[in-house]
Design a binder for these strands. Structure first.
Length: 595
RNA sequence: GGUCCCGUAGCUCAACUGGAUAGAGCAACUGACUUCUAAUCAGUAGGUUGCAGGUUCAAGUCCUGCCGGGAUCGCCA
């Protein structure tokens, strides 16, 4: 009910229902042929099949109903003669082509819609969450490893989804879910033993020894045995190991926080795989008791295949043949932890798409948690996987040196370019050093985040440094620039004591395209929420900014002499600004005061 | 080999889940700063949606078969 198309959908659905046709067919959407009409309903064609009638005949019935009903309502309400074809809402209702129902609404109706919406919180986005909890799992950095560009997608998309859920009225909980528990921990602990290292552990030291330990273990079975032994001791609660492990966790977290802060990515919980550990033993026992976990080739597994599977789904391994725990086990136990502490209605996993099968196994095994009496209700488990980050050669991204690019290096490069761009700008002289750094940072982050988020979540994407640090065209800084222009304009209005009512819209022909676009907000928000797709918001935000920029160049605003029109246009600017602020906020992008 | 995903303008990507004339950005070209910020705007050019069939009023979107690329297929995460 919160976008204009939604309101029209209700009305046209009534019309379909009155004809004895399914309501859903009355869905109205923004027209993809703006030259023909503003909104369209395509349901008559589908309805024709059901009713075994000519589609144009069905459409005619709907159109007649709309005219009669709305005419009658208007007569009662306003005691004036019924219009022949239109009413207070529609400027045009017509049938086109095979049975499209094309609709135009009156400008006064748009003005009223905007006036109402301008008073609502969040631009009229409905709060459907009702305070229910949703846990989001994203970020997933590993202990002892510097964060690289590969962590970008999970962090940024996950944080954006968290913001979307919050705005939809859910209590969203972001959990970083660090990789702090598996064999890598044993590799590091055993490496420190081999070195005879006893002093404090720094991030530099960790970053140096982890790749070595990992390489050695891969090459040498005996070395790997040491790592396994260390892992087992740690997981059994060895005091000295636990203390040392705690130490390098703390060091690593400090490094992660620096990166996440720079990106503006927020977490409510800093938990890791290790936090699932207390749940594992009981869980394994219960699953064994219930008969869901069985022995297979020396390992303890939960079979999860189904009769209707078209593919082979291997069982989830709870315990390896040597008794150690695997990431499937911790992922399963983590669900227990989350259910007990949050009672979420959903858990959303923002992880690499390549882990799809793994989570399929985990999700299926999770159903057994209920069967084993470990949980009363199982939340909806959502796999919001993202595609691989490739280089321009189409292969997984590597720097020219063959390594991975560190996240902080990417941010510095963005910052560098933003500073340089600021130097060229006209307002360079009047800005102090602190504000200047703040602007450069906001511009750089906007560029990086928008470049990432505008890609479809599911598909692979090409990492292009130039594109990520570009400030022109379809970029984050373009959006900031348009928002800043509006801010500047509104401030000027205030300085000149030009007052206007933010709800007094009087939409004219030249304002129509911007006004109509503003009525679409919740259509796009709903889509992004339902499908967990931030790029939908990026696309809408960009189109809105673009439409504003065109409007700005085409129309007089502050310089408009018609006082009513000037006020309306200022209100339009204010509403555009509120909408951009909301959208950029959802994307996790901050706006400077000027740039 | 089994299963799944992808193939759209020179490049990077959209296309509201089957709708009308497939849209943006970059790169190229032409214009617009004495006027509310030119990180901008207005315009030009660029397409057999990998190929071939099929389903229907309508296919980039659905079904089949090819071609090309990628992911994944029990003791790593």
């Amino acid at each position: 009910m919160s976008s204009l198309a939604n309101i029209l959908s209700q009305i046209v659905s009534d019309a379909f229902e009155a004809q004895g046709l399914p309501r859903e067919l009355g869905a109205v959407r923004v027209s993809d042929r703006p030259d023909l009409c503003q909104f369209q309903c395509n349901g008559a064609m589908a309805a024709a099949k059901v009713a075994k009638k000519n589609p144009r005949e069905v459409a005619a019935g709907v159109v007649d109903w709309l005219e009669v009903e709305y005419a009658r309502a208007e007569r009662v309400d306003h005691s004036k003669p019924a219009p022949t074809s239109c009413n207070s809402i529609f400027a045009k209702v017509e049938i086109a082509g095979p049975g499209f129902i094309n609709l135009d609404v009156k400008k006064s109706f748009i003005s009223n819609f905007l006036a109402e919406n301008s008073q609502k919180e969040n631009g009229g986005i409905e709060s459907v969450g009702d305070g229910q909890e949703v846990v989001l799992d994203y970020g997933g950095p590993n202990i002892a490893k510097a964060m690289h560009v590969g962590h970008l997608r999970s962090s940024i998309i996950g944080d954006c989804l968290r913001r979307i859920y919050l705005t939809a009225g859910y209590r969203a909980v972001g959990d970083v879910h660090m990789g702090d528990w598996g064999t890598p921990m044993g590799m590091i602990l055993s490496e420190l033993d081999l070195m005879g290292h006893d002093g404090p552990v720094s991030m530099e030291l960790l970053a140096e020894i982890y790749p070595k330990a990992s390489g050695d273990c891969k090459a040498d079975e005996a070395r790997m045995a040491l790592a396994r032994e260390a892992t087992r001791k740690l997981q059994d609660g060895d005091e000295a190991y636990t203390q040392r492990w705690r130490e390098f966790i703390d060091v690593s977290i400090a490094g992660m926080k620096a990166n996440f802060d720079a990106l503006g990515v927020h977490f409510d919980e800093w938990k890791g795989e290790s936090d699932a550990h207390p749940f594992i033993q009981g869980m394994v026992e219960a699953l064994k008791q219930a008969g869901w976990a069985v022995e297979s080739d020396g390992a303890l597994v939960v079979p999860v295949e189904r009769n209707d599977d078209t593919k082979e789904v291997p069982p989830l391994i709870l315990l390896k043949s040597d008794g150690a725990v695997l990431y499937g086990t911790t992922d399963l136990a983590t669900i227990l932890d989350r259910v007990q502490t949050h009672h979420p209605v959903k858990i959303v996993y923002c992880v690499d798409q390549r882990q799809g099968l793994h989570f399929e196994q985990v999700f299926r095994a999770a159903e057994k948690l209920k069967g084993a009496g470990l949980v009363e209700e199982l939340p909806e488990l959502v796999f919001a996987g993202f595609g691989t980050m490739n280089g321009t050669d189409g292969k997984p991204f590597k720097t020219r040196a063959g390594g991975v690019m560190r996240l902080e290096d990417l941010i510095s490069m963005g910052l560098e370019k933003a500073r340089a761009r600021l130097d060229e700008a006209n307002l360079a002289a009047e800005i102090g050093p602190e504000e200047r750094e703040d602007i450069a940072h906001k511009v750089a982050i906007a560029a990086i985040k928008f470049a990432d988020l505008q890609n479809q979540r599911q598909s692979d994407y090409v990492f292009d440094l130039d594109r990520m640090t570009s400030f022109e065209g379809k970029t984050g800084p373009y959006l900031l620039y348009q928002a800043v222009r509006i801010q500047s304009l509104l401030k000027k209005a205030e300085d000149q004591a030009v007052n206007f009512d933010a709800a007094a819209f009087d939409v004219r022909d030249e304002d129509l395209s911007l006004a109509l676009l503003l009525t679409e907000l919740s259509d796009h928000f709903d889509c992004a929420l339902k499908n967990h797709t931030p790029h939908v918001l990026c696309d809408y935000a960009y189109r809105l900014a673009q439409e504003f920029s065109s409007f700005y160049g085409r129309c007089h605003i502050l310089s408009e002499e018609d006082v009513t029109l000037r006020a309306s246009r200022l209100a339009l600017c204010a509403q555009t600004h509120r909408t951009l602020v909301l959208l950029l906020g959802l994307l996790g992008i901050g706006i400077p005061a000027r740039m």
